[in-house]
Simulated scan of single mutants.
Amino acid sequence: MYIIRDTFYLKFGHYKAAKTLLDEAVSKNLMPVALEVRVFSDFTGDAYRLIIEKGHKTLADYEKQLSGNMSTGEWQKWYEDFKQHVERSHREILKQVV
Rank of each mutant, 00 (worst) to 15 (best):
I52K: 11
W78R: 13
G68A: 14
Q84W: 00
M31L: 15
I93G: 03
M70Y: 01
K16I: 12
L35S: 13
K19A: 14
L10C: 06
L22I: 13
S89I: 03
I51H: 04
V39L: 07
E80T: 14
L59S: 04
G45L: 06
V39A: 08
A25G: 05
I51S: 10
F8K: 05
K19Q: 11
T44G: 05
F43T: 12
I52P: 00
D81G: 02
K95A: 09
A34I: 12
Y48T: 13
T44W: 03
M31H: 02
Y9C: 07
N29P: 00
G45Q: 05
F40G: 05
D61M: 08
V33M: 09
V26C: 04
P32G: 11
L66S: 02
M70T: 15
K54S: 15
Y62M: 12
K77P: 00
A47F: 02
Q65F: 02
K54R: 15
R88C: 05
K54Y: 03
K19R: 13
Q65V: 12
E24F: 02
I51Y: 02
V26E: 12
K54L: 10
V33F: 02
L50I: 15
T7A: 08
W78I: 14
I52E: 09
H56K: 06
K64M: 08
P32I: 10
Y2I: 15
N69C: 06
I4A: 13
D46W: 00
L50A: 05
Q96K: 14
F82E: 05
V97N: 04
R88H: 08
M1S: 11
L30W: 02
R5Q: 14
L94Y: 01
E92I: 07
Y15L: 14
V37K: 13
L22S: 09
W75G: 08
Y62H: 12
K77V: 14
R88A: 12
L30Y: 01
I51W: 03
Y62W: 13
E74P: 01
G68T: 07
E53S: 11
G55A: 15
Y9S: 08
D46Y: 01
T7Q: 07
D46V: 15
K11N: 10
M31P: 00
F12A: 13
K11D: 02
Y15F: 14
G68M: 06
M70C: 06
D81E: 12
Y48H: 14
T20F: 04
